[in-house]
Design a protein around this nucleic acid. Sequence first.
DNA 1: CACGGTTACTCTCAGTCTGAGTAGTTCTCA
DNA 2: TGAGAACTACTCAGACTGAGAGTAACCGTG
Lengths: 250, 250
Amino acid sequence: MTEEQYLAAYDPRAYPAVAVTVDVVALTIREGVLHLLLVRRAEQPFMDYWALPGGFVRPGEDLPAAAGRELAEETGLGGEELHRVHLEQLASYGAPDRDPRMRVVSVAYLAFAPDLPEPSAGTDAGDAEWLPVAALASRRLAFDHERIVADGLERARAKLEYTPLATRFLGEEFTVAELRAVYETVWGHPLHAGNFHRKVLSVPGLVESTGATTEHGGPRGGPRARLYRAGDARLLHPALLRPATEETTR
Amino acid sequence: MTEEQYLAAYDPRAYPAVAVTVDVVALTIREGVLHLLLVRRAEQPFMDYWALPGGFVRPGEDLPAAAGRELAEETGLGGEELHRVHLEQLASYGAPDRDPRMRVVSVAYLAFAPDLPEPSAGTDAGDAEWLPVAALASRRLAFDHERIVADGLERARAKLEYTPLATRFLGEEFTVAELRAVYETVWGHPLHAGNFHRKVLSVPGLVESTGATTEHGGPRGGPRARLYRAGDARLLHPALLRPATEETTR
DNA sequence: CACGGTTACTCTCAGTCTGAGTAGTTCTCA
DNA sequence: TGAGAACTACTCAGACTGAGAGTAACCGTG
């Protein structure tokens, strides 16, 4: 049998029905606080629970495209604004009982976004909101989304160490202090301003100077800060390591 | 409609047919050379091409279980031997045209194994072999498996830096020199023996002493080496960084 | 048995990186 | 105008790293 004959005779229905979805862990920083995008489910199962934005992958649609589409639907973002959003695959979740309807394998994506506007409710979501991640502890999410969020947050924290993705939470131009605020927000503890400044400028390709400064000092005083834009590095050498994760190593 | 009523009326066939498979990038070290497990396809499509061991996820089967089953089928390993194999999810691949038969989303797993016996051909594979990864360049693999292997190798190299997984390529007890050989083999270049020794013993939880030594010196002389077993650390602090990846950072 | 070659392990030293603190300067707010 | 705050630069001690050398144990050979 040639490959052509084989394909003509092939019956996809012979295999068990599995659905593939994408779910997006979208993170942004609003007013100095790390936020996660959630939608309220308007359908069974888990109706009225908060959940990650996501949905079924369409026929012929690539996985990253599906993730981008779901993100755009919930946030109301157009193609241009999506351009500055970093989207990467996180992991896949396929426990047999994770969805009571049928076997569903979900490919989760992680998104880093600059401060985005208030979300617009999408087609299959009654409501959508940016929730501070600190408020997650008191909220039960649909399906296994709590685990997906936990994995996403850990990935995000780790990625700041060895990639320049922290700049993806900021606009085109930013100050060193703004970049430091991103690290402090995501990692959850303060950093030494002087050492951070030295480190950021010494790592090749992290930032490059624009030559300009802010037009005013900070709201509580201080001189004008120099402006930088993201550099061309994709990996940071040496990395910006977060201090002492001793308990988490065992 | 209650959730129960909803589920009773739910029709899974309403959604497009997608198949979910697992593929395993299984790595081991044989005679000082990094090897990858490949199987020769006995069916269309890509008949007679070499491919990663893998196959369809069975109904009710969890994803890691499917990966372990595929690995066991190809290697002939029993449950006990599989116990020392490290298995972790790598990534998922779901481009619409990656399989000419139908839409297939594959969840790839990465396996680190101590020196395993010659593979035994599985049910749906005509042949199986351990191939030195250096020989991969001259071999075209089925589907998008070349990209999956490349991602797996890069993940493996990175994981040696900040986890104790290098010990998973060795037996229960090993010497520092054997551990160094793992790093040199996976990273592909020699390391400074003295500095490596100092580093391995100074990182908390990487190895712990057994108190014993090898019974003889090396085949070409040298004193008996002290034996160690894997420690209890899951993350290495500080990490064992590989030298100078400067070109790869841009 | 003696010897050269090889290996395991230790030590030293210089260069680099990090954390912590200090200081000068510029700016905002009261 | 003065207090407070922030940006940036500098210093210093400690830790870590790469490179090299040294000691001792062990193998094979003559």
